[in-house]
């Protein structure tokens, strides 16, 4: 019998350190599958963030760089400018990209940097133990918003895709999710398109992936995917926010 579904070649055969039901693993697999399908494993350089995905370099089987918290798009810029024919991407969480790294991803987009950001939004800081993230929803309880995020005190969630869309340097911007089989298939398509946009030299690409954090949300994995669907998607609508002109890729 032929294997219809197995581990992508770009992912090493080691167990993930993630909590049960955490969808980082799904996002990793999708990135690995896309890299396999595009045949770029030998030509890709990935960037690990600081946060739960800090050990990403132990999972991907290609060259990896560990970046300081939030700085991956700047590091990736340095790599891409030296090696313009390589495929360069970052894998970052919401605290990394959308809080401390706000300057770096925005200006990478402004410059039309030919890199791809895979942005995992699970509305909470995972690794440090469940504090409020820049994408924590209004009213959402976290360790640092124990009574729910109060917009008077802590403001509102950052909408990364909506922010980037008007920028001329941003070539492909999409928001996907990994809470259901259907959403996962869509997310993979978006990731693939983002890499293709980079490889066609069209500019900056980013895919935001709504993801779950059952542990820090205090939910079971099954409750978490439901919570994502009912709470995150209304606030962070899925879809392609910016695409290159038809027929370009």
């Amino acid at each position: 019998m032929k294997k219809a579904f197995s581990r992508p070649q770009s992912l090493l055969d080691v167990p993930f350190h993630y909590c049960p039901g955490c969808t980082h693993g799904v996002a990793h697999r999708l990135v690995g599958e896309v890299i396999d399908e595009l045949g770029i494993q030998d030509n890709v350089i990935g960037h690990a963030p600081v946060g739960c995905a800090v050990f990403t370099m132990d999972y991907f089987d290609f060259d990896m760089i560990s970046a300081a918290h939030g700085r991956a798009p700047a590091v990736a810029t340095g790599v891409k400018r030296v090696l313009p024919d390589r495929v360069v991407f970052t894998y970052q969480g919401d605290g990394d990209l959308a809080a401390i790294g706000t300057g770096e991803f925005v200006h990478a987009a402004v410059r039309g940097e030919k890199i791809t950001c895979i942005f995992i939004n699970n509305a909470v800081y995972g690794m440090t133990g469940g504090q409020m993230a820049p994408t924590t929803l209004p009213g959402q309880k976290t360790k640092t918003t124990p009574f729910g995020r109060d917009s008077v005190i802590s403001g509102y969630p950052i909408k990364v895709c909506e922010m980037l869309t008007p920028l001329d340097g941003a070539a492909y911007i999409a928001r996907a999710a990994v809470h259901s089989p259907r959403a996962i298939i869509q997310a993979k398509k978006a990731i693939k398109k983002a890499f293709q946009v980079q490889m066609a030299g069209l500019g900056f690409s980013l895919v935001e992936i709504l993801s779950t954090c059952p542990t820090n949300w205090g939910l079971t994995p099954l409750e978490a995917v439901k919570w994502l669907e009912e709470n995150m998607i209304p606030y962070f609508p899925l879809g392609e926010y910016k695409v290159p002109a038809a027929g370009v890729i």
């Binding site: 350089i45 760089i65 970046a67 300081a68 700085r71 700047a74 590091v75 990736a76 810029t77 340095g78 790599v79 891409k80 400018r81 030296v82 090696l83 300057g103 770096e104 925005v106 200006h107 402004v110």
Partner: peptide
């Protein structure tokens, strides 16, 4: 866009 970005671009280019 900042010295913070500059030094991290240096990090990337050196890694490359």
């Amino acid at each position: 866009e900042s010295e913070v970005a500059s030094i991290n671009m240096v990090y990337g280019a050196a890694a490359a």
